[in-house]
Design a protein around this nucleic acid. Structure first.
Length: 508
RNA sequence: GGUCCCUUCGUCUAGCCUGGUCCAGGACGCCAGGUUUUCAUCCUGGCAACACGGGUUCAAAUCCCGUAGGGAUCACCA
């Protein structure tokens, strides 16, 4: 007899976006297959006709690709129509396309008296004690008395998840079923079905759940929750359009994303990242996300925490998956992301940042096009970026109109650096600006040297010039390194902002 | 409520199977210093946990029992 190659699968139900919990399950299944030189299958479990959608399927496939979890069999992610174009010998990989197969097995069960019709549906008899060994949770037992007959074919002719998953895993030669802990109890049904159908048992490995910091289960509803709370606090009663539906939304009768997003836009809310695409949009790197979620429930057993996927593939093991739920800690993820961004070579960072800015922040279009200035911009922000998207916020003053910079006489830093001691800082700034205007050719490095020489000659600290200058350019004292800041800003705008800053305070 | 599962620093966790090397190690965060013209980065140090109660044993975070707390599931959803 031949040994089957290790085969794992990720089998999402296309009823929404891929969230981090699903991503981790996929990651573990992928890593296990890779480690053993086996196969990784993507199977779409769309037996719920009402809730499944092609958009969800495409979104999930796209997210999986972005994460780099490539598969050997399943829908072709590059195809215009993944439903029509699939890769692999054991397809189709959409359960909605496998009805004949399921019916054949259902009929067998009925013929053998192991299943029976019930109001148009078909139920499977659960009359035996069940025991199985889970690779994570160990030996699990259920007494027959606690088990109930369950539906394997719905009245609409579609199989239920339980029947389809068992038949497909068997027919696709899946050797290891890695899935969320919510299926641990379902496994009793699956094992019984497997036995009735004469299929071998795969190895089951159930993973603990990923929870919110408050202990609730992380779910897509969390976004609606945040929006609803904010809407109530802001006393919103109408969202334009369908007021009845909005009232229902507020009463938790629906979790409509339409309202969630509208509220977030109106109140400038930060919605919690739940889906893989949320993290992508926020500017997290797949490597950092993958690394972090891998660590949620698994660890290599030594003190190594930051690693790449090659390391995970080498070290991964079912036995080292934890049993208890873990809370998703965005702060730690952010720290991993900061490191991942910092470790990028500058060319890659530049490419990723350019894409982030052009996808989400059109006000950066001019800066992106100016290769010299953009290079300085990248050099300035790579070391201080926690996420790609954060750069857009940090560097906003560079792309704002000169007139949009706000100089506030009540601002603490402004008082300290410009206004204190009868406007000492302003005087210095005015005097230094004369020197700066003469600087030719303009460069950040030369500007920086100018500051240094200017200060050395007068026995001043560089901060006495640099800080007023920062305020003139950005309205705050928070900017990157001075040389880079001047490079990005350019001579003309630098001088204009200084002039405007001086006149703002002198006219008062 | 029934059933199944879980319980080490605020959080993620190592250690538990094969009791002593653990007055419990690492990471994120936090606090205090240092580097830096600002911010961020970076460096050093510090605070911080075996849920509780019994038992077994010379010895228990580690084994057993119980209690409490948490999660999952009990759908013609997956």
């Amino acid at each position: 007899m031949t040994t089957l190659p290790i085969t794992t699968r990720f089998a999402p139900s296309p009823t929404g976006a891929l969230h981090v919990g699903g991503a981790r399950t996929a990651l573990f299944a992928w890593a296990y297959a890779k480690q053993h030189g086996g196969k990784f299958i993507i199977r779409i479990e769309d037996t719920d006709q009402k809730r499944s959608s092609p958009q969800s399927t495409k979104g999930i496939l796209q997210d999986l690709q972005w994460l780099g979890l490539n598969w050997d069999q399943g829908p072709n992610p590059d195809a215009t129509d993944p439903y029509a174009d699939q890769i692999g010998e054991q397809g189709p990989y959409f359960q909605s396309q496998r009805l004949d197969i399921y019916n054949k097995h259902i009929n067998t069960l009925v013929e053998q008296g192991l299943a029976y019709e019930d109001d148009g549906a078909i139920r499977f008899r659960m009359d035996k004690d069940i025991a199985f060994t889970d690779a994570v949770y160990g030996d699990i037992k259920f007494a027959a008395a606690d088990l109930e007959d369950f539906v394997i074919r719905k009245a609409d002719g579609f199989p239920t998840f339980h029947l389809a998953v068992v038949v497909d895993d068997a027919l696709m030669n899946v050797t290891h079923v890695i899935r969320g802990q919510e299926h641990l109890i379902n496994t009793s049904k699956h094992v019984a079905l497997l036995d009735a159908l004469g299929f071998a048992h795969p190895t089951y490995a159930h993973t603990p759940s990923i929870m919110n910091p408050d202990g609730s289960k992380m779910s897509k509803r969390d976004k609606a929750k945040v929006a609803r709370k904010a809407a109530k606090e802001a006393k919103l009663t109408s969202m334009g359009g369908d007021d009845d539906a909005f009232t229902e939304f507020l009463d938790k009768k629906n979790d409509d994303m339409k309202f969630t997003l509208a509220i977030a836009r109106l109140l400038e809310l930060e919605l919690p990242e739940i889906n893989v695409s949320d993290f992508r949009d926020s500017g997290y790197l797949p490597a950092a996300l993958l690394n972090y979620i891998a660590l949620l429930g698994w660890n290599p057993g030594d003190d190594i925490e930051q690693f790449d996927m090659a390391f995970l593939v080498e070290k991964f093991g079912l036995g080292r998956i934890g049993k208890s739920n873990s809370k998703f800690d965005r702060t730690k993820l952010r720290s991993f992301n900061t490191d991942a961004i910092g470790n990028l070579d500058s060319e890659t960072f530049s490419k990723l940042l350019r894409k982030q800015l052009s996808d989400h922040h059109p006000q950066y279009n001019n800066l992106i096009e100016d290769s010299t200035r953009f290079a300085a911009f990248c050099a300035a922000y790579q070391p201080r970026a926690h996420t790609l998207d954060e750069v857009a916020t940090l560097g906003h003053f560079f792309v704002a109109d000169n007139d949009a910079i706000v100089y506030n006489e009540n601002d603490k830093a402004t008082k300290k650096n410009l206004l204190k001691n009868e406007g000492k800082g302003l005087k210095t700034l005015a005097e230094f600006a004369v020197e700066l205007a003469k600087l030719e050719p303009w460069s950040g490095e030369a500007g920086h040297d100018l500051i240094k020489n200017y200060c050395d000659a007068r026995e001043m600290n560089m901060g006495q010039v640099a800080q007023p200058l920062r305020i003139a350019l950005s309205g705050t004292t928070v900017t990157p390194d001075m040389a880079l800041t001047l490079d990005i800003m350019g001579k003309s705008d630098t001088l204009k902002r200084i002039e405007r800053c001086l006149s703002t305070f002198q006219s008062q």
